[in-house]
């Protein structure tokens, strides 16, 4: 049996719900660490960064699902909804950490930053684009919209990923490697979607 078969077989047996449990426990754990000093002397920044980065990781993971199926025959599609919803949770918490803890509810400055600072504007675009995705992430919404329209709406995920990658790269000083790797991965995962369907390799 090939590795692909093994993964697919395991995926058929393993349900998606444990991902939600672990995924919800992570922010609780991060918050507890931040409050107890385990994240260093600047816990607000540490919490903000970690939540944002975990959100971005999940977005990238979600983008991997389709190419994995198409080019490697690995079918993890039943987990994609949980990845997307958790990404939304983390990005909302990332935003709330910024607004409530970092800016301490300085509304004027927060609003000014969202409008004036391109990297924050881009981040907000990404967050807002996740809202319709989260709202339509249930079977009822799929039925209500119809599969074709729902599929089309899900393309917003590409905008979310691009916004997230650009937001990360744009906020750093100097040029560290990590944000380039994330944006590169996102661009790569979007690019493989443009390969014409006749090159389908899936088993």
């Amino acid at each position: 049996m090939t590795l692909t078969d093994r993964i697919n077989q395991a995926a058929r047996r393993l349900p998606a719900w444990p991902i939600y449990i672990v995924g919800v426990l992570l922010p609780v754990w991060l918050f507890w660490q931040a409050a107890s000093g385990a994240l260093g002397v600047d816990p607000i920044k540490a919490l903000e960064d970690r939540l944002g980065l975990w959100g971005l990781k999940l977005i990238v993971a979600g983008l991997c699902v389709t190419p994995l199926r198409r080019f490697a025959g690995v079918n993890l599609i039943k987990y994609r909804r949980s990845l997307g919803l958790l990404a939304f949770l983390y990005i909302v918490l990332h935003f709330l950490t910024w607004l409530l803890l970092d800016l301490g509810l300085r509304w004027e400055q927060a609003l000014g930053d969202i409008i004036k600072r391109p990297y924050i504007t881009v981040g907000m675009v990404g967050l807002l684009a996740m809202v319709p995705l989260a709202l339509t992430s249930n079977d009822r919404a799929v039925r209500w919209l119809g599969s074709a329209r729902w599929q089309k709406l899900q393309k917003l995920a590409y905008l979310v990923a691009l916004s997230g990658g650009v937001h990360f790269l744009w906020l750093v000083k100097a040029w560290p490697v990590e944000p380039f790797l994330y944006l590169g991965a996102i661009l790569g995962l979007l690019a493989v979607r443009m390969i014409p369907k006749r090159f389908r390799l899936a088993a």
Binding site: A34, A35, G37, V41, D42, P43, I44, K45, L47, L101, D102, L103, G104, R106, Q109, G112, D113, K116, R117, P118, Y119, W170, L171
Partner: peptide, 22 residues
């Protein structure tokens, strides 16, 4: 005078903890 990418109007004092604000 703001940094082009962020406001310089306020600051986070290190050591203030998770609820230190600005």
């Amino acid at each position: 005078v703001d940094h082009p990418r962020w406001s310089q109007a306020s600051e986070r004092r290190i050591g203030g903890g998770l609820f230190g604000g600005r």
